[in-house]
C-alpha cells in the first residue's frame, strides 16, 4: 500500500512522516514519531488516553487519520512542560497524588489544559463534565478533580 508523505507541526517542531491511508494520528504519533506519551486504551474514542490538541482543539488521536494531520499543529503531553519547568497541572497532579498507575495521566493533563484555556475558573461540575471523556480506573477521579481545580486557582493567581 502506497504511503502518504505528510508535513505537520508537533509541539512546535516541524515534522514529516510517511503513513498508510488507514493509519490513525495515534499510530503516527506513537510508531512513526516515537511520541509514546500519548496512550492507546481503546482505539474507539471512548477512553481519552490518546487526547491531543489539533490546532488548539481537543481530539482523540485514535479517531483522526494521520493523513488528516497535514498542515496542522499538534500538541501532545511531551510538549506540555516548559523546559525543566513542569506545567502547573503536571505539578498539581504530583502534589495531589492524582495518579496511581499513570496510564490515563497524559490524556487527563492534555484535556485539563484544554479546559483551563477555555475556562480559567471552572466549577467542580464543569471539570467533571469536561473530563468525562477520559477514563481513569484507579483513582475514582477525586484527586484528579482537586488537582485541576487547584492548578486553575494557581494559574489565575488566586
Amino acid at each position: 500500500m502506497a504511503k502518504h508523505h505528510i508535513a505537520a507541526v508537533v509541539n512546535g517542531d516541524p515534522v514529516e512522516f510517511l503513513c498508510e491511508p488507514g493509519d490513525t494520528l495515534l499510530d503516527v504519533l506513537r510508531d512513526a514519531l516515537g511520541l509514546t506519551g500519548t496512550k492507546e486504551g481503546c482505539s474507539t474514542g471512548d477512553c481519552g488516553a490518546c487526547s491531543v490538541t489539533v490546532d488548539g482543539r481537543l481530539v482523540c488521536a485514535c479517531l483522526m487519520l494521520g493523513v488528516e494531520a497535514a498542515g496542522t499543529s499538534i500538541g501532545t503531553i511531551e510538549g506540555m512542560a516548559n523546559g525543566e519547568e513542569l506545567h502547573p497541572l503536571q505539578r498539581k497532579f504530583l502534589e495531589h497524588a492524582a495518579l496511581q498507575c499513570g496510564i490515563c495521566t497524559p490524556g487527563f493533563l492534555v484535556a485539563a489544559k484544554s479546559l483551563l484555556e477555555r475556562s480559567p475558573d471552572p466549577t467542580e461540575t464543569e471539570v467533571r463534565y469536561w473530563l468525562a471523556g477520559n477514563l481513569c480506573r484507579c483513582t475514582g477521579y477525586d484527586k484528579i478533580v482537586r488537582a485541576v481545580l487547584d492548578a486553575a486557582a494557581e494559574m489565575r493567581g488566586a
Binding site: G34, F93, L99, G102, T105
Partner: peptide, 23 residues
C-alpha cells in the same frame, strides 16, 4: 507524609514506558 512519588515526573511528562511503549 505525602511525599511526591519518585516515578511521578516520568508519568506526567509522557516519559514513563508502559507495555506497548517499547519497540
Amino acid at each position: 507524609t505525602r511525599a511526591v512519588r519518585p516515578d511521578g515526573v516520568d508519568k506526567v511528562t509522557g516519559r514513563a514506558r508502559f507495555g506497548a511503549d517499547l519497540a
